[in-house]
């Protein structure tokens, strides 16, 4: 009996250890290039480890039962007439409930840190009149906290391109240039169908919805060029609807900005 329990404990700990090892050492995600990315990856690791424990555990039990309890040649008769076990049922109701609840609370925390819980409705400084309503988005700061000296950009999406309007410089660009480590605020509107703004390296995505402007605020942390991908089916060329976001040092950014701006200071 003791021996049996010991084996079980060893197996359980091996599964957990293996899951932790895989979860912590195998990276399935692209580069991290915004404040959101490390927060996201933290959540990903936790979910990955919990998932692995459950999956490896269940798979091993199924394979083990298939092997251990298979009907051998010449064996007759049934298994044991066991119809149920209340304490087991309670056990496997309570444990998943607790896991799910903890994961839910934790992902709430993550979401809050990513800025998902901020009210974004009225009074955004980019909204000219009060009747215009922002529908949703993600922002690390709420409207009132947003200072006016952010980098503000208006994104308009259409079949099948993104256009980036820099209102402060009164020019439009086909590439999104942003300075590193600054808070960027983009307001997005679609001219025709639904599109989506996705930068995998930033771990953020927001639909761009016709008739309903959305806001996305983020802070890039790594200089480089990353793809902006349209992630909502928008027609035949949906797959080709891409743009680039170029994250550069503030001085480079200002140089680029000044080269393109139409209005004088």
């Amino acid at each position: 009996m003791l021996n049996k329990n010991l084996n079980l404990i060893i197996v359980v700990f091996t599964i957990i250890g293996l899951s932790f090892w895989i979860g912590l050492n195998i990276n399935l995600l692209p580069k991290e290039a915004s404040i959101n990315a490390p927060i996201y990856d933290e959540l990903f690791k936790i979910l990955f480890i919990i998932g692995l424990i459950l999956f490896i555990g269940m798979t091993l039990i199924v394979i083990y039962s298939l092997f251990k309890f298979r009907r051998k040649k010449g064996q007759l008769g049934d298994g044991i007439a066991l119809e149920g076990n209340l304490s087991l049922e309670i056990l496997w109701t309570v444990i998943p409930s607790v896991v799910v609840l903890l994961v839910g609370l934790y992902s709430y925390n993550i979401y809050d840190r990513m800025g998902g819980m901020k009210e974004l409705n009225h009074n955004h400084h980019m909204i000219d009149n009060n009747s215009e309503k922002i529908w949703a988005g993600i922002s690390q700061k709420s409207n009132t906290q947003l200072s006016t000296n952010n980098v503000n950009i208006e994104v308009s999406a259409m079949q099948f391109a993104f256009l980036f309007n820099y209102p402060d410089g009164d020019f439009i660009s086909g590439e999104l240039h942003v300075p590193v480590d600054e808070e960027i605020s983009i307001k997005m509107e679609s001219k025709d169908v639904i599109h989506a703004f996705w930068v995998p390296e930033f771990r953020i995505k927001q639909d761009i919805i016709p008739g309903q402007p959305t806001i996305l605020n983020f802070t890039p942390t790594r200089v480089g060029k990353y793809p902006i991908i349209c992630a909502e089916l928008c027609g035949p060329y949906h797959g080709g609807m891409r743009a680039s976001i170029i994250v550069e040092e503030l001085s480079d950014y200002e140089q680029w900005f000044n080269k393109n701006r139409k209005t004088e200071v």
């Binding site: 979910l47 989506a196 953020i204 995505k205 992630a231």
Partner: peptide, 18 residues
């Protein structure tokens, strides 16, 4: 299990429609 991961808003935001 991947479904439960997708159910978490912050997780889904990155992988939605992928």
């Amino acid at each position: 299990i991947t479904g439960v991961a997708l159910a978490q808003v912050p997780f889904d935001i990155h992988v939605h429609d992928t």
